[in-house]
Design a protein around this nucleic acid. Structure first.
Length: 272
DNA sequence: GTAAACCTGGCA
DNA sequence: TGCCAGGTTTAC
């Protein structure tokens, strides 16, 4: 499911609801997601008050009173939802239910179980250690930074942008959209990118990610934020999942190729 | 580098 | 029945 804009949308929707709340009890209803869930997680969270929240790439965390972070990654199908009252979390794929003191709950729901939940120190966590710059960080993520990868790899530009070590938080949907706006085909080798192409990609990345956050992410099948609302950016997708449909710029039919095992949609006329 | 693995659900 | 899906890791 979620790429950076969806994760940020979840974080923003939940923060005002959970900050100041204390987790009275954490119910673990499955032995593992992408990592095992166990007593360590329960001990890290139970009895602690949430004092803030953070996000880096596709990871989000709630800051606990001891300074550590309660981390989540949504994988492909994860949902995090605040539920009012006491009768929350009876669904089939509700794997994690945090009951707050005084009622209400936070429920992690994930049919495919590719998600993750652990407690770790945000400042030193291995999860974040090798991650590239945030795409909206204008200082760290600029055209020179991206252009430098031309000397390091011959991989397709789409692969490079999907690599979390290069830039954080981009996934299949947004890289497709970014490359369309940049006029660059997903299979183009990084080596064949001009400095001008790199600049176009960086500008398009900022535009697409900022706009997607404004629209509260893309709900292509079932994405919901922390309070059950759909996003609106799916209506603005120009190429993603539009095979055969006319390009919004030139009317040529959108094509699809596979790059790095993922479907990549592009306009054969606008993207070279 | 590329493929397969981890899982379930939805759709042709 | 088979293929595809917003992700990441691990194995040839």
């Amino acid at each position: 499911m979620p790429e950076l804009p969806e994760v940020e949308t979840i974080r923003r929707s939940l923060e005002p609801l959970v900050v100041g709340r204390t987790v009275a009890r954490l119910e673990l209803r499955t032995p593992r997601l992408r990592v095992p869930l166990g007593e360590e997680l329960r001990r890290g969270v139970e009895g602690r008050c949430i004092t803030g929240s953070g996000r880096r790439g596709k990871y989000l965390w709630f800051v606990l009173e001891d300074g550590r972070g309660w981390f989540f990654h949504m994988g492909m199908s994860g949902r995090l939802r605040f539920v009012e009252g006491a009768d929350a979390g009876e669904g089939v794929h509700d794997h994690l239910i945090a009951r707050f003191a005084g009622g209400d709950a936070l429920v992690f729901h994930d049919p495919r179980r590719f998600g993750l939940s652990i407690v770790d120190d945000p400042a030193t966590s291995k999860l974040l250690a090798d991650m590239g710059p945030e795409p909206l960080d204008e200082v760290a993520f600029d055209s020179d930074y991206l252009a430098a990868f031309r000397r390091r790899t011959t991989r397709a530009v789409k692969d490079v942008l999907m690599d979390q070590r290069v830039v954080a938080g981009l996934g299949n949907i947004y890289v497709n959209e970014i490359l369309f706006l940049s006029g660059v085909r997903p299979r183009r080798s990084m080596v064949r990118m001009t400095l001008r192409d790199c600049a176009a990609v960086v500008v398009a990345t900022r535009e697409v990610i900022a706009e997607a956050i404004e629209h509260r992410g893309s709900s292509i099948s079932d994405f919901l934020d922390g309070i059950g609302q759909r996003g609106g950016y799916q209506w603005r997708h120009r190429v993603y999942d539009r095979e055969g449909q006319p390009c919004t710029t030139c009317r040529a039919p959108i094509k699809v190729v596979v790059v790095g095992q993922r479907s990549s949609f592009y306009c054969p006329r606008c993207q070279r």
